[in-house]
Amino acid sequence: MRLHDLAHVRTGDKGDISQISVIAYRAADYPRIARALDTARVGAVLGVAAGAIRRYELPQLGALNFVLEGALSGGVTRSLALDAHGKTLGAHLLALEIGDGA
């Protein structure tokens, strides 16, 4: 099962920071998503150092918000790597395979 089966994302970019909010479709799936996504795993999937990622839990909304510092190679307007922008990072994260017991 992939993350996109359980959740959708909203993203934003500001300067050299990207934010990705992972929002469960169903409240019952939030605990599973929270277990599956820690800063180390998100960093490994997106190629961002885990120390540069902060995770905020929003259980009432069934969401996790990840703030990725330094993810945009100097900033959205300075980056030559268009694929590093938030929408692409969010789509890449949704393709993550998560196990049944994650």
Rank of each mutant, 00 (worst) to 15 (best):
L93G: 03
R55I: 07
L46Y: 02
H8S: 09
R2K: 15
R41H: 11
P31V: 13
H92N: 11
A63Q: 06
L58M: 14
R35D: 09
A49P: 04
D13W: 08
H8T: 14
T11R: 09
G43A: 13
A102S: 15
V48H: 01
T11C: 12
A91H: 10
R2A: 06
G15H: 07
T11I: 10
G70L: 07
V22T: 08
A95Q: 15
P31Y: 06
D13K: 05
I53S: 00
A84S: 15
R54H: 10
A84V: 09
D83I: 02
G12N: 03
L93F: 05
E97T: 14
G90H: 08
A63S: 11
G86K: 10
G43D: 00
S73G: 10
E69G: 11
I33H: 03
R10K: 13
L68C: 11
R26A: 11
G86M: 06
S73I: 02
R32P: 00
L58H: 11
G90W: 05
G74I: 09
R54F: 03
G70Y: 03
A36D: 05
D16C: 09
S18G: 15
L3G: 00
G86P: 04
L82F: 12
A27N: 11
R41Y: 06
R2F: 06
V22S: 00
R35Q: 13
H85M: 14
N65E: 09
I33V: 10
Y56K: 03
A34M: 10
R26M: 04
A40W: 06
L58C: 07
A7G: 00
L64D: 01
I33G: 04
I33L: 05
R2M: 12
V48L: 02
A63W: 04
T39P: 03
P59K: 05
A40Q: 14
D100H: 08
Y25I: 11
T11H: 07
G15C: 10
M1I: 14
L46K: 08
A44E: 13
L96V: 10
